[in-house]
């Protein structure tokens, strides 16, 4: 299948961008965790590894997408779904930590709630999730995307 005739070429291209941003977010998180970083994001080594895992899912989607459209759809759907769900979790976790600090009378910055790198990576993945989940259900209803 030739990529230039792709009916969803923008969405496909977007998968590539999301791969990069997710990978970068992962690397930033790990660097922060190791103590070498900007201090803008929350240090989180396991979280960084999870981001890299999701980036690997996106990368697989991009590679598969050149020849195998359902492969692209499924990998980018799961990648985006996990990223968005995990970002939701990250917001809850940071909100919890923030409230705890406030209640214990310690100093806390409201900005920490949104400074998990998950959130920024996830915002970029939301359009991908919306687009791809449509395609995924399209496939199931006998649509033409898979053939």
């Amino acid at each position: 299948m030739n990529n230039t005739t792709y009916p969803h070429q923008y969405l496909y291209g977007w998968t590539g961008i999301v791969t990069l941003t997710t990978g970068i977010a992962g690397i930033i998180s790990i660097r922060e965790g190791a103590g070498i970083g900007t201090g803008l994001f929350i240090p989180d080594i396991p979280g960084g590894c999870i981001l890299l895992l999701i980036a690997a899912l996106f990368a697989t989607a991009v590679i598969k997408g050149r020849t195998d459209r359902p492969g692209w759809i499924s990998f980018s759907y799961i990648g985006a779904l996990l990223l968005v769900v995990f970002a939701g979790c990250a917001i809850l976790v940071e909100t919890g930590n923030f409230l705890t600090l406030i209640m214990e009378g310690e100093e806390a910055h409201l900005l920490t709630i949104v400074s998990s790198s998950f959130i920024w990576a996830a915002i970029l993945a939301i359009p991908l999730l919306a687009g791809v989940s449509k395609l995924l259900y399209g496939c199931s209803c006998g649509g033409d995307c898979c053939e």
Partner: peptide, 24 residues
Amino acid sequence: PIFLSCMWFAFQLTFSASNPFIVG
């Protein structure tokens, strides 16, 4: 790896999201 990441977030949530209630 996907399964482990789900579990990891589940435990983070269990600990952090309930913390304000515990303090309360």
